[in-house]
Design a protein around this nucleic acid. Structure first.
Length: 306
RNA sequence: GGGCAGUUACCAAAGUGGCCAACUGGGGCUGACUGUAACUCAGCUGUCUUUCGACUUCGGAGGUUCGAAUCCUUCACUGCCCA
């Protein structure tokens, strides 16, 4: 990216699911006449509309959006690829725009844009399958020992009880022939534009109430039918998503519908909490209530060089 | 009216004389997390205390005992059965 974008600003609107990001960000996008880049890792998938509370057709035609419905649930996509794709897009969009918006709640995806990630190779299906099978057959203790052997430094750092983290480290060791920890630098990349992080949050009780209500609304809008369409692909990672995975338990006959819907509410609340835990670490975020639009506008005017 | 069963922390549910502030599960809270991340994982969850520990609890009241959630008496409530 050239120096020409150094006075440009990326407005990052983030917050827990259901807090009301879409509404306020549309108003701000219209005011600044800028497009919105989504950082919602599930709204990427065009098949998942209702369950991810994707922007409506009307909203999409009011403001130009990127990364909404751009991928299929069958696609292989990752955070690292997202970083590359978004950075390329931003450099193009900043030619015409002084201000751009990144809106969404997917923590690691937001960080990938704002801080960058190390260049870690993507894992081929064969390697993934190999370690997955090793884990299934020999258990957590075995893959822990393998990690100790292949990457003792990482072994001492990772959460060893978290099999996903252990597996991924092993996958990278396998592919590169080097310890995973050699590749991880942990260095933040400096972006050639300003980043303003706006956090949106509400009282916990209020947030949870909104989440609960939104789940009811999704059901009324036909979430069950939407999920049912992809029932045969329910094993896909992209469908291991709140709002879908619970309904598949119902369709598998394990839960009754009321229970499943209740679990969607609960899992949504937990997700919101996890998002907040992640965001709370980031001291660059300035927090607002989504209803205080005037306050946010005033803040932005102060922060953006205009 | 009679008989039986039950009442334990936010909920469910173990515990039936000392190892009990009380198993376990759920819920809740807090946190970790550099690529399948709306994933995955961890800690806490009577009160006070940073820890050691102290204090108040197992429906209410009273009693037995060195010691009670656990035994006895009684009251209250709940469920089932017989009238």
């Amino acid at each position: 990216m050239s120096d020409s974008v150094k006075n440009k600003t990326l407005l990052v609107f983030l917050g827990p699911t259901g807090v009301g990001k879409t509404d306020i960000s549309l108003e701000i996008a219209r005011y600044y006449a800028c497009p919105i880049v989504s950082s919602d890792s599930r709204q990427f998938y065009r098949e998942l509309k209702i369950g991810t509370a994707a922007p409506t057709e009307a909203q999409l035609s009011a403001v130009k959006h990127y990364f909404i419905g751009t991928h299929s649930i069958h696609d292989e996509y990752s955070c690292g690829q997202y970083e590359l794709d978004v950075m390329k897009l931003l450099s193009e969009l900043f030619v015409e725009n002084e201000v751009l918006m990144l809106v969404g709640g997917s923590m690691m995806y937001i960080d990938a844009v704002c801080e960058g990630m190390d260049d870690i190779p993507s894992v081929d299906a064969e390697t993934r399958e190999f370690w997955k099978n090793e884990y299934a057959a020999k258990g957590l203790g075995f893959i822990q020992e393998e990690l100790k052997r292949l990457d003792p430094a990482h072994y001492n750092e990772v959460d060893l009880k978290n099999y996903k983290r252990v597996l991924h480290a092993l996958e990278i060791c396998s592919i590169t022939g080097k310890p995973f920890s050699d590749i991880r630098t942990g260095k933040k990349k400096v972006r050639p534009f300003n980043i303003v992080k706006v956090g949106l949050n509400r009282e916990r009780e209020e947030l949870y109430e909104r989440i609960n209500k939104r789940v009811d609304q999704m059901m009324q809008e036909g979430l069950l039918a939407e999920a049912e369409q992809f029932y045969s692909f329910r094993h896909l990672n992209t469908l291991n998503t709140v709002g879908y995975k619970e309904l598949y338990e119902y369709m598998d006959g394990k839960w009754d519908l009321d229970f499943a819907v209740n679990m969607i509410r609960q899992d949504s609340r937990r997700y919101a909490k996890r998002q907040l835990t992640w965001f709370n670490r980031d001291k660059e975020i300035v927090w607002f209530h989504p209803d205080d639009k005037e306050v946010v506008f005033r803040y932005l005017k102060n922060v953006i060089n205009k």
